[in-house]
Amino acid sequence: MKAAEDSIVTTAVDEFLAWGKEHSLFYLLFATACCGIELMQTGGPRYDVDRLGMIPRATPRQSDLMIVAGTITHKMASRVRTLWEQMTEPRWVVSMGSCANSGGPFSKWSYSVLNGVDKYIPVDVYIPGCPPRPEALIDGVMALRERVRRYRTLGIRDRDPYVVAGHEAPFGSHPGKEREATR
């Protein structure tokens, strides 16, 4: 992929497309459990993610972003994979909440919970919390927007997952913010 990056001249069109994608991240209305309520409230009147260009879509074929909100069980996991495969490239995945990250409170004693959705689909942003606050979700989305901006045709994209409030990023700061500051 490195070679392709070197040999292809990126143009303003590519940047323009990325800019457009960044500001219209349509997300799949996909909620399994508790985090789904927080996802709904994030789309609700107070947090209002519509202002970020995020509009819920009922079908995976129209969405760019899958927010895995809630526990994924073994029975559900293959359906999540199917949904992810139905989304068109470039597609992005945010794992919201401890259950989707790692099985959360169910990881130890539950026989039926999948311990982390990343066993089935690749995850771009992890958001810890049980459930995460809407602010944390927005924080993760802002970090994701930075990746969407760096996305280039031919599938050149960041591969390492980003963790909200991970040790390299104190809570409330994300790569986008730092970039704004150094501009």
């Binding site: 029975k75 169910f106 026989y111």
Partner: peptide, 11 residues
């Protein structure tokens, strides 16, 4: 049903 069976009774 059962797509969200998280075994809470077993826990």
């Amino acid at each position: 049903q059962g797509y969200l069976h998280r075994a809470i009774e077993k826990i």
